[in-house]
């Protein structure tokens, strides 16, 4: 029941904060546009008035790009550096926006206000940045020791059957994926705690994130698993349907853009629901703890 309560409370809070999600979507969309629009213009310029682009109507045709000759390396480096810069800018932007979103879904946030969203974002930018950075490094570290190392060691062992590399990758991959909800619980609990306790330093929040994750772990884990699986749905929908859809008219391309943005928005919504549910659950745990302490004090 507690899970459903947290999810329900989380849902009410996320609906209240939907404007915050729209702001988040817009910021990310604008960020990506600053990378993709110049890329598209440079492609337009490079292909000029050639009709070879009609060979792209049926999907990606590498030969078309290969024939760009000397222009290809510059387009590729434009793509790769642009992608990297967008990712790093996205990382900073995410620290700011998630701080705003956590602020909007906390217990006493009341009605959504844009100034409240931005001030929460500004206030908690550095702690959120630090928490995200440390936990991202933690994920990379876990990936290296759980997946990369065992798989590389198996690959180097000549005497093992070939199947073993596949099996080791499978098992270590599953273990890693099962750990992801735990890591996200720590990240979300830390950020949620930090939002409610401005005076606590970021590193201490991470510590609190761990302790909150371990208290009533089974139920928290289950809730996180449900939320993550929900989040995966729009991703799978995007992977399954979008590539097969090959519009040939300008209107069709626009519709494709709208649908993919809707799917992205759905993902953002579900992610924010995750923040809100974790926050609701944390409120619940902290309340119980406080009550417990009060009862203890009364008994004393």
């Amino acid at each position: 029941m507690k899970i459903i309560n947290s999810l329900g409370t989380g849902f009410i809070r996320v609906v209240k904060a939907v404007k915050g999600i729209i702001i988040t979507w817009f910021c990310f969309y604008f960020l990506v546009l600053t990378f993709v629009y110049p890329l598209r213009k440079s492609l337009d310029f490079t292909f000029g008035s050639s009709m070879i682009t009609e060979r792209l109507a049926d999907g990606f045709d590498f030969e078309v790009f290969a024939d760009l000759g000397n222009a290809l390396p510059s387009i590729l480096s434009f793509f790769s550096t642009g992608f990297m810069i967008t990712f790093f800018a996205g990382f900073l932007l995410n620290a700011f926006l998630t701080a705003g979103l956590f602020g909007s879904v906390k217990k006493d946030s009341g009605r959504f206000s844009a100034p409240g969203f931005f001030s929460a974002g500004a206030l908690n930018f550095w702690p959120f940045f630090l928490i995200s950075l440390l936990i991202t490094f933690g994920i990379i570290f876990l990936f290296i020791i759980i997946v990369l190392l065992p798989v590389s060691i198996t690959a180097m062992a000549e005497t093992l059957p070939e199947r073993s590399i596949f099996l080791v990758s499978l098992v270590s991959g599953i273990v890693f994926l099962l750990l992801i909800p735990v890591i996200l619980l720590v990240a979300d609990n830390s950020r949620s705690f930090k939002t409610g306790h401005r005076e606590v330093p970021a590193l201490k929040s991470i510590g609190k994130g761990f302790s909150l994750t371990s208290s009533d772990f089974g139920r928290s884990y289950l809730m996180m698993l449900i939320l993550i699986l929900g989040q995966v749905v729009p991703g799978i929908a995007a992977i399954l349907f979008l590539p097969a859809w090959k519009p040939v008219t300008g209107g069709g391309v626009f519709l494709l853009l709208v649908v993919s943005q809707l799917l992205f928005f759905a993902r953002l919504f579900l992610k924010t629901w995750r923040y809100a549910s974790v926050t609701a659950r944390m409120d619940d745990i902290l309340l119980t703890n406080t009550r417990g302490m009060e009862i203890q004090q009364v008994n004393n």
Partner: peptide, 13 residues
């Protein structure tokens, strides 16, 4: 320009 716009749209998504 539709095919290039579509590719750009896909990269954005």
């Amino acid at each position: 320009r539709t095919p290039l716009r579509r590719i750009a749209g896909r990269i954005a998504s």
